[in-house]
């Protein structure tokens, strides 16, 4: 298997669904079933992520981008579908179907996640070093000295002053908190990194700094990244390929330049034109 991650027909549904909305060919009212009112936050999404690639997922608010990412990180249980991670059992086992204990192992060793809201990804009362160490401890490290060294190395790379690594993230600015989150996410050199709206809420100069750091991390570690954003500028700057989501489904996907220069779907055209 060449892909770092393969996702097949992933679905996240709130509600029981009915015979109408379970038939993929039937249209929904936005992402809501007109009959049973079930919400299809993510509906039969399939894609592949290749090693060392940055895949952008773009779409309007409520299109299911974050839900997709969080279901891949097992924060939200997927209703159906499969995902295969090359680092887990050579990509032969559906990671959505493994036990919760195995899912934790995958989360701790093979995936990294940076949330839009740092309070979801960080322990705000623990030191920044402790936050990074948590990921290392979860992966089995039991040596304080080596964990401190690793945390310092990562935080320094993320431009957190070494003199502040013992401070809790609650004392940091939003941009610094995001950088601590990135340090934590890559602590175990995961093959796949998931980034959810990492620059939202940050001012332009801090956004640029965070994006530069993401790019440098990707080059240094050679990891595959999925970045979710509603900001096309971020996607254009970072991603090699782009998926456009609308109402829980994929409406267009392709090379980022192709999507930006020659959008085919009316929604993508609206997005691109509104950017320009």
């Amino acid at each position: 298997m060449n892909q770092a991650l393969t996702v097949n027909d992933l679905t996240v549904r709130y509600g029981n669904g009915c015979s109408y909305c379970r038939d993929i060919s039937n249209p929904l009212d936005k992402n809501r079933c007109p009959h049973c009112k079930s919400v299809w936050a993510v509906r039969n999404i399939s894609f592949e992520l290749y090693p060392s690639e940055i895949l952008g997922i773009v779409g309007e608010s409520g299109s299911g981008k974050t839900t997709l990412l969080r279901s891949l990180y097992f924060d939200i249980p997927a209703t159906s579908g499969a995902a295969y991670l090359s680092g887990y059992s050579d990509g032969l086992v559906d990671i959505m179907g493994v036990s919760s204990q195995q899912k934790r192992i995958i989360r701790n060793s093979l995936l990294g996640m940076v949330y839009q809201n740092p309070t979801q990804g960080l322990l705000m009362d623990y030191s920044s070093s402790g936050n990074v160490a948590q990921k290392l401890i979860a992966a089995g490290s039991r040596n304080v000295g080596s964990m401190q060294d690793r945390a310092n190395e990562l935080l320094e790379h993320m431009q957190i002053p070494l003199g502040r690594v013992k401070e809790p993230p609650k004392q940091f600015s939003g941009g610094m908190q995001q950088r601590v989150q990135i340090s934590k996410a890559i602590a175990n050199n995961p093959p796949v990194l998931l980034l959810d709206e990492v620059t939202t809420g940050l001012d332009l100069s801090v956004q640029a700094k965070v994006l530069d750091l993401i790019r440098s991390v990707q080059k240094k570690l050679n990891i595959a990244i999925i970045i979710v954003s509603h900001d096309l500028a971020v996607i254009r700057m970072l991603s090699d390929r782009t998926i456009v989501m609308l109402d829980g489904g994929i409406v267009e996907h392709g090379l980022t330049d192709q999507i930006m220069e020659d959008p085919q779907h009316w929604f993508t055209q609206t997005l691109v034109h509104s950017l320009i």
């Binding site: 204990q101 934790r104 623990y126 160490a133 948590q134 401890i137 964990m147």
Partner: peptide, 14 residues
Amino acid sequence: ADKEYSSAWLMLYE
């Protein structure tokens, strides 16, 4: 249930 005790070790690390 998941034998996930990293937070207990983290408390000591902290």
